[in-house]
Nucleic acid binder design. Structure first.
Lengths: 215, 215
DNA sequence: TCTTAATAGGTAGTTATACTATCCATAATA
DNA sequence: TATTATGGATAGTATAACTACCTATTAAGA
Protein backbone atom coordinates (compact mmCIF):
# COMPACT_ATOMS: atom_id res chain seq x y z
CA UNK A 1 0.00 0.00 0.00
CA UNK A 2 1.19 3.48 -0.79
CA UNK A 3 0.02 6.60 0.99
CA UNK A 4 -0.89 8.92 -1.84
CA UNK A 5 -1.61 12.59 -1.33
CA UNK A 6 -4.07 12.39 -4.21
CA UNK A 7 -6.69 10.06 -2.86
CA UNK A 8 -8.97 11.43 -0.15
CA UNK A 9 -9.27 8.27 1.95
CA UNK A 10 -6.57 7.51 4.48
CA UNK A 11 -6.13 5.62 7.71
CA UNK A 12 -4.90 6.77 11.07
CA UNK A 13 -1.17 6.48 10.30
CA UNK A 14 -1.37 8.79 7.29
CA UNK A 15 -3.67 11.22 9.06
CA UNK A 16 -1.10 11.42 11.82
CA UNK A 17 1.81 11.86 9.43
CA UNK A 18 0.12 14.50 7.32
CA UNK A 19 -1.21 16.49 10.27
CA UNK A 20 1.99 16.28 12.26
CA UNK A 21 0.06 15.13 15.33
CA UNK A 22 0.69 11.88 17.16
CA UNK A 23 -1.81 9.06 16.91
CA UNK A 24 -2.64 9.27 20.65
CA UNK A 25 -3.32 12.99 20.28
CA UNK A 26 -5.69 12.43 17.36
CA UNK A 27 -7.43 9.70 19.33
CA UNK A 28 -7.74 12.17 22.20
CA UNK A 29 -9.33 14.76 19.91
CA UNK A 30 -11.73 12.09 18.66
CA UNK A 31 -12.69 11.23 22.24
CA UNK A 32 -13.20 14.91 23.07
CA UNK A 33 -15.44 15.38 20.04
CA UNK A 34 -13.13 17.95 18.42
CA UNK A 35 -12.49 15.75 15.41
CA UNK A 36 -15.43 14.14 13.67
CA UNK A 37 -15.26 10.30 13.52
CA UNK A 38 -14.03 8.67 10.35
CA UNK A 39 -16.16 6.55 8.06
CA UNK A 40 -16.31 3.10 9.62
CA UNK A 41 -15.39 0.11 7.43
CA UNK A 42 -15.20 -2.52 10.16
CA UNK A 43 -15.60 -2.89 13.90
CA UNK A 44 -12.13 -1.48 14.45
CA UNK A 45 -11.37 0.26 11.19
CA UNK A 46 -12.19 3.68 9.81
CA UNK A 47 -11.04 5.91 6.98
CA UNK A 48 -10.46 9.65 7.14
CA UNK A 49 -10.42 12.23 4.38
CA UNK A 50 -9.47 15.81 3.55
CA UNK A 51 -12.09 17.23 5.93
CA UNK A 52 -10.43 15.51 8.87
CA UNK A 53 -7.07 16.96 7.89
CA UNK A 54 -8.55 20.44 7.58
CA UNK A 55 -10.22 20.06 10.97
CA UNK A 56 -6.92 19.13 12.56
CA UNK A 57 -5.32 22.19 10.95
CA UNK A 58 -8.08 24.36 12.40
CA UNK A 59 -7.68 22.82 15.85
CA UNK A 60 -3.94 23.43 15.61
CA UNK A 61 -4.43 27.08 14.69
CA UNK A 62 -6.92 27.61 17.51
CA UNK A 63 -4.71 25.98 20.12
CA UNK A 64 -1.17 26.89 19.04
CA UNK A 65 -1.72 30.32 17.49
CA UNK A 66 -4.73 31.63 19.38
CA UNK A 67 -3.85 29.70 22.54
CA UNK A 68 -7.45 28.67 23.11
CA UNK A 69 -8.35 25.91 25.59
CA UNK A 70 -9.94 22.85 24.01
CA UNK A 71 -13.34 23.78 25.49
CA UNK A 72 -13.40 26.94 23.38
CA UNK A 73 -12.02 25.08 20.37
CA UNK A 74 -14.99 22.77 20.70
CA UNK A 75 -17.39 25.73 20.64
CA UNK A 76 -15.79 27.01 17.44
CA UNK A 77 -15.75 23.71 15.58
CA UNK A 78 -19.34 23.03 16.64
CA UNK A 79 -20.30 26.38 15.09
CA UNK A 80 -18.39 25.49 11.93
CA UNK A 81 -20.13 22.11 11.81
CA UNK A 82 -23.54 23.68 12.23
CA UNK A 83 -24.87 25.61 9.26
CA UNK A 84 -23.79 29.02 10.54
CA UNK A 85 -23.56 32.09 8.35
CA UNK A 86 -20.23 33.91 8.13
CA UNK A 87 -21.48 36.60 10.52
CA UNK A 88 -22.65 34.00 13.03
CA UNK A 89 -19.32 32.20 12.73
CA UNK A 90 -17.51 35.48 13.33
CA UNK A 91 -19.54 36.03 16.49
CA UNK A 92 -18.65 32.60 17.84
CA UNK A 93 -14.96 33.12 17.11
CA UNK A 94 -15.07 36.59 18.70
CA UNK A 95 -16.61 35.10 21.84
CA UNK A 96 -13.98 32.37 21.92
CA UNK A 97 -11.11 34.84 21.53
CA UNK A 98 -12.33 37.06 24.38
CA UNK A 99 -11.62 36.05 27.94
CA UNK A 100 -14.67 37.07 29.87
CA UNK A 101 -14.50 39.36 32.87
CA UNK A 102 -17.57 40.79 34.51
CA UNK A 103 -17.72 44.57 34.49
CA UNK A 104 -20.41 47.11 35.15
CA UNK A 105 -18.35 50.28 35.05
CA UNK A 106 -20.72 53.00 33.90
CA UNK A 107 -17.95 55.61 33.85
CA UNK A 108 -15.81 53.46 31.56
CA UNK A 109 -18.86 52.67 29.45
CA UNK A 110 -19.52 56.40 29.02
CA UNK A 111 -15.92 57.05 27.95
CA UNK A 112 -16.13 54.24 25.40
CA UNK A 113 -19.54 55.30 24.11
CA UNK A 114 -18.35 58.83 23.48
CA UNK A 115 -15.46 57.50 21.37
CA UNK A 116 -17.43 54.97 19.32
CA UNK A 117 -20.55 57.05 18.70
CA UNK A 118 -18.24 59.80 17.45
CA UNK A 119 -17.40 57.43 14.62
CA UNK A 120 -20.99 56.29 14.19
CA UNK A 121 -20.46 52.67 15.13
CA UNK A 122 -23.44 50.48 15.84
CA UNK A 123 -22.48 47.65 18.15
CA UNK A 124 -24.36 45.46 20.59
CA UNK A 125 -23.73 46.57 24.18
CA UNK A 126 -24.55 43.06 25.32
CA UNK A 127 -21.77 41.48 23.25
CA UNK A 128 -18.63 40.07 24.90
CA UNK A 129 -16.54 42.37 22.69
CA UNK A 130 -18.29 45.45 24.10
CA UNK A 131 -17.88 44.21 27.66
CA UNK A 132 -14.21 43.50 26.94
CA UNK A 133 -13.73 47.04 25.63
CA UNK A 134 -15.45 48.52 28.70
CA UNK A 135 -13.27 46.35 30.87
CA UNK A 136 -10.12 47.54 29.10
CA UNK A 137 -11.11 51.18 29.56
CA UNK A 138 -11.91 50.51 33.21
CA UNK A 139 -8.51 48.91 33.76
CA UNK A 140 -6.73 51.84 32.13
CA UNK A 141 -8.76 54.20 34.32
CA UNK A 142 -7.97 52.45 37.59
CA UNK A 143 -4.29 52.33 36.65
CA UNK A 144 -4.39 56.05 35.87
CA UNK A 145 -3.01 55.51 32.37
CA UNK A 146 -4.59 58.74 31.14
CA UNK A 147 -2.11 59.19 28.26
CA UNK A 148 -3.64 56.13 26.59
CA UNK A 149 -7.23 57.09 27.39
CA UNK A 150 -6.60 60.58 26.02
CA UNK A 151 -5.72 58.95 22.72
CA UNK A 152 -8.74 56.63 22.66
CA UNK A 153 -10.02 58.26 19.47
CA UNK A 154 -6.78 57.41 17.67
CA UNK A 155 -7.09 53.75 18.70
CA UNK A 156 -10.74 53.67 17.67
CA UNK A 157 -9.83 55.08 14.28
CA UNK A 158 -7.07 52.51 13.78
CA UNK A 159 -9.41 49.73 14.92
CA UNK A 160 -11.95 50.91 12.37
CA UNK A 161 -9.40 50.59 9.60
CA UNK A 162 -8.50 47.08 10.74
CA UNK A 163 -12.11 45.98 11.14
CA UNK A 164 -13.05 47.35 7.73
CA UNK A 165 -10.11 45.59 6.12
CA UNK A 166 -11.10 42.32 7.86
CA UNK A 167 -14.60 42.49 6.45
CA UNK A 168 -13.27 43.43 3.01
CA UNK A 169 -11.08 40.35 3.06
CA UNK A 170 -14.02 38.11 3.96
CA UNK A 171 -16.21 39.29 1.11
CA UNK A 172 -13.48 38.36 -1.35
CA UNK A 173 -14.04 34.63 -1.00
CA UNK A 174 -16.56 33.07 -3.30
CA UNK A 175 -18.30 30.14 -1.66
CA UNK A 176 -19.99 30.27 1.74
CA UNK A 177 -17.81 27.40 2.95
CA UNK A 178 -14.75 29.34 1.88
CA UNK A 179 -16.01 32.48 3.63
CA UNK A 180 -16.65 30.55 6.87
CA UNK A 181 -13.12 29.21 6.69
CA UNK A 182 -11.81 32.69 5.99
CA UNK A 183 -13.68 34.17 8.92
CA UNK A 184 -12.54 31.60 11.44
CA UNK A 185 -8.92 31.19 10.36
CA UNK A 186 -8.63 34.86 9.47
CA UNK A 187 -9.82 35.99 12.88
CA UNK A 188 -7.32 33.69 14.52
CA UNK A 189 -4.30 34.39 12.30
CA UNK A 190 -4.82 38.12 11.70
CA UNK A 191 -4.56 38.79 15.45
CA UNK A 192 -0.87 37.87 15.91
CA UNK A 193 -0.09 39.58 12.59
CA UNK A 194 -1.48 42.93 13.70
CA UNK A 195 0.02 42.54 17.15
CA UNK A 196 3.49 41.87 15.71
CA UNK A 197 3.15 44.76 13.26
CA UNK A 198 2.26 47.11 16.10
CA UNK A 199 5.35 45.99 18.01
CA UNK A 200 7.47 46.61 14.90
CA UNK A 201 5.95 50.06 14.56
CA UNK A 202 6.77 50.71 18.21
CA UNK A 203 10.37 49.68 17.50
CA UNK A 204 10.51 52.06 14.57
CA UNK A 205 9.25 55.05 16.54
CA UNK A 206 11.31 54.11 19.60
CA UNK A 207 14.46 54.38 17.44
CA UNK A 208 13.43 57.90 16.54
CA UNK A 209 12.93 58.60 20.22
CA UNK A 210 16.37 57.25 21.14
CA UNK A 211 18.11 59.18 18.36
CA UNK A 212 16.44 62.44 19.29
CA UNK A 213 17.52 61.92 22.93
CA UNK A 214 21.11 61.24 21.88
CA UNK A 215 21.34 64.35 19.74
CA UNK B 1 -4.69 48.65 65.59
CA UNK B 2 -6.37 50.13 62.57
CA UNK B 3 -5.43 49.43 58.99
CA UNK B 4 -5.18 52.89 57.48
CA UNK B 5 -4.91 53.47 53.76
CA UNK B 6 -2.73 56.49 54.53
CA UNK B 7 0.30 54.92 56.14
CA UNK B 8 2.68 53.05 53.88
CA UNK B 9 3.63 50.26 56.28
CA UNK B 10 1.37 47.23 56.52
CA UNK B 11 1.52 43.59 57.43
CA UNK B 12 0.51 40.53 55.47
CA UNK B 13 -3.19 40.65 56.32
CA UNK B 14 -3.61 44.18 55.00
CA UNK B 15 -1.49 43.49 51.94
CA UNK B 16 -3.76 40.56 51.20
CA UNK B 17 -6.94 42.56 51.75
CA UNK B 18 -5.82 45.54 49.67
CA UNK B 19 -4.44 43.46 46.81
CA UNK B 20 -7.36 41.07 46.72
CA UNK B 21 -4.98 38.11 46.75
CA UNK B 22 -5.00 35.37 49.36
CA UNK B 23 -2.17 35.18 51.88
CA UNK B 24 -0.98 31.80 50.51
CA UNK B 25 -0.84 33.27 47.02
CA UNK B 26 1.25 36.23 48.18
CA UNK B 27 3.56 33.85 50.04
CA UNK B 28 3.84 31.84 46.83
CA UNK B 29 4.81 34.95 44.86
CA UNK B 30 7.40 35.76 47.56
CA UNK B 31 8.84 32.24 47.26
CA UNK B 32 8.95 32.56 43.47
CA UNK B 33 10.77 35.89 43.68
CA UNK B 34 7.99 37.81 41.91
CA UNK B 35 7.30 39.97 44.94
CA UNK B 36 10.23 41.60 46.72
CA UNK B 37 10.56 40.63 50.43
CA UNK B 38 9.19 43.04 53.02
CA UNK B 39 11.33 44.92 55.50
CA UNK B 40 12.07 42.50 58.30
CA UNK B 41 11.31 43.61 61.86
CA UNK B 42 11.78 40.24 63.60
CA UNK B 43 12.61 36.67 62.80
CA UNK B 44 9.05 36.05 61.69
CA UNK B 45 7.75 39.52 61.01
CA UNK B 46 7.96 41.89 58.07
CA UNK B 47 6.25 45.05 56.90
CA UNK B 48 5.23 45.84 53.34
CA UNK B 49 4.55 49.18 51.72
CA UNK B 50 3.07 50.84 48.65
CA UNK B 51 5.71 49.34 46.35
CA UNK B 52 4.61 45.83 47.29
CA UNK B 53 1.01 46.70 46.52
CA UNK B 54 1.99 48.16 43.15
CA UNK B 55 4.04 45.07 42.36
CA UNK B 56 1.08 42.84 43.10
CA UNK B 57 -1.06 45.01 40.81
CA UNK B 58 1.53 44.61 38.07
CA UNK B 59 1.71 40.86 38.55
CA UNK B 60 -2.07 40.73 38.42
CA UNK B 61 -2.16 42.69 35.16
CA UNK B 62 0.52 40.51 33.60
CA UNK B 63 -1.16 37.24 34.60
CA UNK B 64 -4.88 38.03 34.40
CA UNK B 65 -4.95 40.53 31.53
CA UNK B 66 -1.94 39.51 29.45
CA UNK B 67 -2.21 35.84 30.47
CA UNK B 68 1.54 35.54 30.91
CA UNK B 69 3.05 32.56 32.72
CA UNK B 70 4.84 33.43 35.94
CA UNK B 71 8.24 32.79 34.31
CA UNK B 72 7.64 35.67 31.90
CA UNK B 73 6.19 37.81 34.66
CA UNK B 74 9.46 37.30 36.50
CA UNK B 75 11.44 38.52 33.47
CA UNK B 76 9.34 41.68 33.32
CA UNK B 77 9.50 42.54 37.01
CA UNK B 78 13.26 41.86 36.98
CA UNK B 79 13.61 44.41 34.17
CA UNK B 80 11.47 46.88 36.10
CA UNK B 81 13.63 46.32 39.19
CA UNK B 82 16.82 46.86 37.23
CA UNK B 83 17.50 50.41 36.11
CA UNK B 84 16.21 49.95 32.57
CA UNK B 85 15.35 52.81 30.26
CA UNK B 86 11.81 53.03 28.94
CA UNK B 87 12.93 51.67 25.57
CA UNK B 88 14.71 48.73 27.21
CA UNK B 89 11.64 48.06 29.34
CA UNK B 90 9.48 48.13 26.23
CA UNK B 91 11.75 45.55 24.61
CA UNK B 92 11.47 43.22 27.58
CA UNK B 93 7.69 43.53 27.66
CA UNK B 94 7.51 42.97 23.88
CA UNK B 95 9.55 39.79 24.25
CA UNK B 96 7.35 38.60 27.09
CA UNK B 97 4.15 39.24 25.15
CA UNK B 98 5.34 37.31 22.09
CA UNK B 99 5.13 33.54 22.09
CA UNK B 100 8.22 32.37 20.27
CA UNK B 101 8.02 30.11 17.24
CA UNK B 102 11.01 29.33 15.10
CA UNK B 103 10.65 30.40 11.49
CA UNK B 104 13.01 30.82 8.59
CA UNK B 105 10.54 31.47 5.82
CA UNK B 106 12.35 33.63 3.30
CA UNK B 107 9.26 34.00 1.13
CA UNK B 108 7.23 35.31 4.05
CA UNK B 109 10.13 37.52 5.07
CA UNK B 110 10.21 39.04 1.59
CA UNK B 111 6.47 39.74 1.65
CA UNK B 112 6.79 41.42 5.03
CA UNK B 113 9.86 43.43 4.03
CA UNK B 114 8.14 44.83 0.97
CA UNK B 115 5.27 46.07 3.13
CA UNK B 116 7.34 47.62 5.92
CA UNK B 117 10.05 49.19 3.79
CA UNK B 118 7.28 50.80 1.77
CA UNK B 119 6.46 52.74 4.92
CA UNK B 120 10.12 53.36 5.74
CA UNK B 121 10.20 51.43 9.00
CA UNK B 122 13.53 50.56 10.55
CA UNK B 123 13.22 47.48 12.72
CA UNK B 124 15.62 44.81 13.94
CA UNK B 125 15.22 41.62 11.91
CA UNK B 126 16.64 39.70 14.85
CA UNK B 127 13.91 40.86 17.21
CA UNK B 128 11.21 38.46 18.40
CA UNK B 129 8.61 40.89 17.07
CA UNK B 130 10.02 40.63 13.55
CA UNK B 131 10.15 36.85 13.76
CA UNK B 132 6.57 36.83 15.03
CA UNK B 133 5.48 38.96 12.09
CA UNK B 134 7.26 36.68 9.61
CA UNK B 135 5.65 33.72 11.29
CA UNK B 136 2.20 35.30 11.01
CA UNK B 137 2.72 35.96 7.29
CA UNK B 138 3.98 32.41 6.81
CA UNK B 139 0.90 30.98 8.54
CA UNK B 140 -1.43 33.08 6.38
CA UNK B 141 0.47 31.91 3.32
CA UNK B 142 0.25 28.20 4.13
CA UNK B 143 -3.45 28.56 4.88
CA UNK B 144 -3.94 30.34 1.53
CA UNK B 145 -5.58 33.33 3.20
CA UNK B 146 -4.59 35.59 0.33
CA UNK B 147 -7.39 38.11 0.96
CA UNK B 148 -5.64 39.09 4.20
CA UNK B 149 -2.15 39.08 2.68
CA UNK B 150 -3.39 41.23 -0.19
CA UNK B 151 -4.38 43.82 2.40
CA UNK B 152 -1.09 43.69 4.31
CA UNK B 153 -0.40 47.34 3.53
CA UNK B 154 -3.65 48.36 5.19
CA UNK B 155 -2.73 46.44 8.34
CA UNK B 156 0.77 47.93 8.34
CA UNK B 157 -0.68 51.40 8.05
CA UNK B 158 -3.10 50.79 10.93
CA UNK B 159 -0.28 49.30 13.01
CA UNK B 160 1.79 52.39 12.35
CA UNK B 161 -0.98 54.61 13.71
CA UNK B 162 -1.23 52.45 16.82
CA UNK B 163 2.52 52.28 17.39
CA UNK B 164 2.90 56.03 16.95
CA UNK B 165 0.07 56.67 19.38
CA UNK B 166 1.68 54.27 21.89
CA UNK B 167 4.97 56.17 21.79
CA UNK B 168 3.16 59.49 22.00
CA UNK B 169 1.44 58.31 25.15
CA UNK B 170 4.73 57.25 26.73
CA UNK B 171 6.43 60.59 26.19
CA UNK B 172 3.59 62.30 28.03
CA UNK B 173 4.68 61.05 31.44
CA UNK B 174 7.11 63.20 33.36
CA UNK B 175 9.41 61.07 35.50
CA UNK B 176 11.42 58.09 34.23
CA UNK B 177 9.78 55.86 36.85
CA UNK B 178 6.39 56.99 35.60
CA UNK B 179 7.38 56.34 31.99
CA UNK B 180 8.62 52.82 32.85
CA UNK B 181 5.32 52.12 34.55
CA UNK B 182 3.49 53.58 31.56
CA UNK B 183 5.43 51.44 29.12
CA UNK B 184 4.92 48.18 30.98
CA UNK B 185 1.31 48.59 32.05
CA UNK B 186 0.44 50.42 28.84
CA UNK B 187 1.81 47.62 26.65
CA UNK B 188 -0.18 45.08 28.63
CA UNK B 189 -3.46 46.97 28.91
CA UNK B 190 -3.53 48.60 25.46
CA UNK B 191 -3.48 45.19 23.80
CA UNK B 192 -6.94 43.99 24.91
CA UNK B 193 -8.29 47.50 24.32
CA UNK B 194 -7.27 47.52 20.67
CA UNK B 195 -8.35 43.93 20.22
CA UNK B 196 -11.80 44.65 21.64
CA UNK B 197 -12.13 47.81 19.54
CA UNK B 198 -11.27 45.85 16.39
CA UNK B 199 -13.96 43.31 17.23
CA UNK B 200 -16.46 46.12 17.75
CA UNK B 201 -15.48 47.59 14.39
CA UNK B 202 -16.00 44.16 12.84
CA UNK B 203 -19.48 44.06 14.39
CA UNK B 204 -20.26 47.48 12.96
CA UNK B 205 -19.22 46.58 9.44
CA UNK B 206 -20.81 43.13 9.68
CA UNK B 207 -24.17 44.82 10.36
CA UNK B 208 -23.74 46.77 7.15
CA UNK B 209 -22.97 43.51 5.39
CA UNK B 210 -26.07 41.80 6.80
CA UNK B 211 -28.34 44.71 5.91
CA UNK B 212 -27.07 44.89 2.36
CA UNK B 213 -27.69 41.15 1.98
CA UNK B 214 -31.24 41.47 3.31
CA UNK B 215 -32.18 44.24 0.91
C1' DT C 1 -0.01 38.61 82.07
C1' DC C 2 -2.44 35.45 79.75
C1' DT C 3 -4.75 34.06 75.77
C1' DT C 4 -5.75 34.20 71.14
C1' DA C 5 -4.62 35.36 66.56
C1' DA C 6 -1.18 36.42 63.01
C1' DT C 7 3.24 35.69 60.75
C1' DA C 8 7.51 33.72 58.11
C1' DG C 9 9.09 29.89 56.18
C1' DG C 10 8.92 25.29 54.83
C1' DT C 11 6.95 20.95 52.81
C1' DA C 12 3.40 18.60 50.85
C1' DG C 13 -1.03 18.25 48.52
C1' DT C 14 -4.55 19.87 45.02
C1' DT C 15 -6.73 21.18 40.64
C1' DA C 16 -7.02 21.73 35.79
C1' DT C 17 -5.45 20.98 31.25
C1' DA C 18 -3.58 18.50 27.70
C1' DC C 19 -1.86 15.03 26.50
C1' DT C 20 0.61 9.98 26.64
C1' DA C 21 0.91 4.99 27.58
C1' DT C 22 -0.90 0.54 27.81
C1' DC C 23 -4.27 -3.09 26.84
C1' DC C 24 -7.11 -5.85 24.14
C1' DA C 25 -9.62 -7.77 20.44
C1' DT C 26 -9.76 -7.37 15.73
C1' DA C 27 -8.23 -6.30 11.11
C1' DA C 28 -4.82 -5.31 7.55
C1' DT C 29 -0.50 -6.30 5.45
C1' DA C 30 3.72 -8.75 3.93
C1' DT D 1 0.98 -17.01 9.00
C1' DA D 2 3.57 -13.59 11.40
C1' DT D 3 3.79 -8.93 12.12
C1' DT D 4 1.92 -4.59 12.36
C1' DA D 5 -1.99 -1.29 12.67
C1' DT D 6 -6.41 0.08 14.47
C1' DG D 7 -10.48 1.50 17.51
C1' DG D 8 -11.86 1.87 21.98
C1' DA D 9 -11.17 2.09 26.78
C1' DT D 10 -8.69 3.07 31.04
C1' DA D 11 -5.04 4.78 33.48
C1' DG D 12 -0.92 7.47 33.98
C1' DT D 13 2.07 11.77 33.22
C1' DA D 14 3.73 16.67 33.02
C1' DT D 15 3.23 21.20 34.07
C1' DA D 16 1.50 25.40 36.04
C1' DA D 17 -0.50 27.77 39.65
C1' DC D 18 -1.88 27.67 43.51
C1' DT D 19 -3.59 25.77 48.47
C1' DA D 20 -3.19 23.45 52.95
C1' DC D 21 -0.78 22.38 56.78
C1' DC D 22 2.93 22.69 60.20
C1' DT D 23 6.10 24.86 63.52
C1' DA D 24 8.28 28.30 66.01
C1' DT D 25 7.74 32.82 66.90
C1' DT D 26 5.56 37.35 67.55
C1' DA D 27 1.75 40.65 68.07
C1' DA D 28 -2.53 42.23 70.06
C1' DG D 29 -6.30 42.41 73.12
C1' DA D 30 -8.75 41.52 77.73
Amino acid sequence: MQESAEKSGMRMAELSRRSGLSVPTIKYYLREGLLQPGRRTSVNQAVYDRTHLERLHLIGALTSVAGLPLAKVRAVVDAVDGQASEVEAMGVVQDALIDEAETDDTAASAILDRAITARGWHCAKSSPAYRAAVNAVAMLTTENLTPILDRLDAYVEAAEDVGRTDLDAISDAVSLEERIRGVVLGSVLRRPLLEALVLLAQQHFAQDLTRSEES
